[in-house]
Design a protein around this nucleic acid. Structure first.
Length: 571
RNA sequence: GUACCUAUAGCUUAGCUGGAUAAAGCAUUUGGCUACGAACCAAAAGAUCGUGGGUUCAAAUCCCUCUAGGUGCACCA
């Protein structure tokens, strides 16, 4: 379709120049071209309103004039002027054949476009705080980040997934106090993370009443920073038990990371940050702390607290320095909730003093909205936190129940329930525009009808089953000898958009674009599938439709896999 | 106080680099399984696009006011 756009733009530019003496580049004209609202208004449209003012004529007249002077070959089957627009109808017979043959030719590589040329993109995501169970609040960063990870690989970049563990800071000084105080009351080994987080809540409460506990926590953290062996051993224990649980969660979600260098990793790398900032003369003393002032009215970015300890911004800055050197990234993405917008704005601003412009201009914060419960905000103090492990188990159990109610021919129901349950969880989340808050309701998430994960998976299963039943080896069909009908043309043109959609999704850091597209594909396939018989038709028709089904299957499978959702072949 | 984000059908949302009749799903009403999986398809009904201004040939979309909700704003992460 892009080629045809270019062709139309080229022809238009000739008419504009000759008839009106308007000089426009192909790119400018392509930008003016749009997709008509309705499919029966053609494939490409040129609104002529902008010319009206310059030419002092009505858009309708101009459209007619341009249309009359336009010389176009058989790639376009029809041009029509409708209320100020010129609508172009592509010759879909040729177009559809070439689109389908291209998809079949590329197979499961369809969608891959090498725009990244192997450049590194770091994606900082998930990043839970250790010594606490993984909860629903970490879910969005994990699956949005993972989707971006897959997308950038698909675009020919080399994605580097970084789990910037929250494993450093005063809170661990506090946990240590709590641990020593309360450990004898628990059998920690039984469920370390839940117990540790309970201890954290208790000690936090005490500290609120007794300021000296916070002071001691800060001391502890200072000691950790200085390498106190005893305290570090405790810290290491917290980290080990945390990683054990996180690994389990990542495995079930299918997430992979190339690095688990968390905040503690940068402990010995922050001195250099301080030195560089100091040398550049931007580090100033303010209220006892060392800070970088960014603007007059705004509070500064704290680099060293008044007790000399570092703060999370210092660690993020050290990470920018380290990642620029280690990965020489073309882009560096941070996926966190919108609560941290201000923080990253500051960090990105200060990092201009640390690294080359090459590395600062592609620092990207990808913020997303909060997950809320029907009962309100999640709070560990209120005990209203939803742990992801529990949630996943519940989702799987509920899915299993629904599957059994609906009936299935699958033997391994547990596996299927896992694929569907987790798929539904991911799909529902990524379906929404990421910046919007989500009110979490498991019953809503696990609906199987309409725009849902199970619906897409079901569509895929039907495609798979159809091709199986045909008894034809799909790879032996190379040519299309058939003129596609309206349903088919619509679906094929949609499949043709896949590469653009992947690009757009990555460029906007917005997985919902891809999700919406997959819904559109599945829904169009279902319409086609309902209105057209396949297996009983003559060979030419049957083969063409099987190719179409197979191509749709390729796009759906690839699309879902990019989102981290599995595609069962039976349900 | 100030900055940023959000507000579209009963519910959940899409559309937001301005363009043709505001698009889906759920729920509601109705029709379709002796063709390949009905977890499906089709039809009907359902919208003062939060309010009030402004810019424009054209505003859900851009600018301003106000309202409601959310989030951030110096030693937590």
């Amino acid at each position: 379709m892009e080629e045809i756009k270019k062709y139309i733009a080229k022809e238009l530019s000739k008419v504009l120049l000759n008839k009106y003496n308007i000089e426009m580049t192909l790119e400018e004209i392509i930008l003016m071209l749009e997709k008509p609202k309705d499919d029966n208004m053609g494939d490409i449209a040129l609104p002529c309103f902008k010319f009206a003012k310059v030419l002092k004529n009505s858009p309708m007249n101009i459209a007619n004039q341009i249309n009359e002077n336009l010389e176009i070959d058989n790639r376009i089957s029809k041009c029509e002027v409708v209320s100020g627009y010129i609508n172009f109808y592509t010759n879909s017979e040729k177009l559809c054949k070439s689109i389908l043959e291209n998809i079949i030719h590329k197979g499961n590589k369809y969608g891959y476009v090498n725009v990244g040329k192997g450049q590194n993109v770091t994606i900082d995501y998930s990043s839970p705080n250790i010594a606490k169970p993984f909860h629903l609040g970490h879910f969005r960063t994990t699956i949005i980040g993972r989707t971006l990870y897959n997308l950038y690989n698909e675009l020919g970049y080399n994605s580097i997934g970084i789990n910037h563990l929250g494993d450093w800071g005063r809170q661990f000084g506090l946990v240590i106090i709590g641990y020593e105080m309360f450990k004898d009351e628990y059998d920690i080994e039984k469920d370390p993370l839940h117990i540790l987080s309970e201890i954290y809540v208790r000690i936090n409460k005490l500290a609120k009443e007794d300021e000296s506990i916070f002071v001691k926590a800060s001391d502890n953290f200072k000691k950790l920073e200085e390498g106190d062996k005893e305290l570090l051993a405790l810290w290491q224990y917290f980290k080990d038990v945390s990683m054990k649980e996180y690994d389990r969660i990542y495995k079930i979600l299918g997430c992979k990371f190339d690095s688990f260098n968390g905040e503690a990793f940068y402990n010995d790398k922050m001195d250099e940050v301080v030195k560089i900032l100091d040398k550049k003369g931007v580090l100033v003393l303010s209220e006892g702390a060392k800070v970088v002032k960014l603007s007059e009215n705004e509070p500064p970015c704290i680099i060293l607290k008044s007790n000399g300890s570092t703060i999370y911004a210092t660690r993020d800055l050290a990470a920018v320095l380290y990642r620029s050197r280690t990965y020489d990234y073309a882009k560096s993405i941070y996926v966190t909730s919108y609560e941290q917008i201000h923080h990253f704005k500051q960090v990105f601003e200060v990092s201009k003093f640390l690294v080359d412009e090459k590395y600062t201009k592609e620092l990207v914060h990808v913020p997303y909205g909060m997950v809320r419960l029907k009962t309100g905000k999640m709070s560990s103090r209120e005990g209203t936190v939803v742990y992801l492990q529990d949630l996943i188990e519940e989702a799987i159990a509920k899915s299993k129940k629904i599957i059994e109610e609906k009936g299935t021919e699958v033997e391994d129901i547990d596996l299927l329930a896992k694929q569907i349950g987790i798929g539904a969880l991911i799909f529902n989340d990524l379906k929404h525009n990421k910046i919007k808050d989500i009110v979490f309701d498991l019953d809503e998430v696990l609906r199987f009808d309409g725009e849902t994960g199970p619906y897409i998976q079901y569509t895929y299963v039907r495609i798979f089953s159809l091709i199986n039943k045909s008894g034809i080896d799909i790879n032996t069909i190379k040519k299309v000898n058939y003129i596609f009908n309206e349903d088919e043309v619509k679906l094929i043109k949609l499949l043709d958009m896949f590469e653009d959609i992947i690009f757009e999704t990555a460029e906007n850091y917005e997985p919902s674009i891809l999700v919406r597209y997959i819904i559109d594909v599945a829904s169009n396939f279902s319409t086609f599938y309902n209105n057209n018989s396949i297996l009983v038709e003559d060979n030419n028709i049957k083969e063409a439709r099987l190719l179409l089904a197979n191509s749709t299957g390729i796009v759906i499978k690839k699309g879902l896999n990019l989102l981290g959702i599995e595609t069962p072949t039976k349900m």
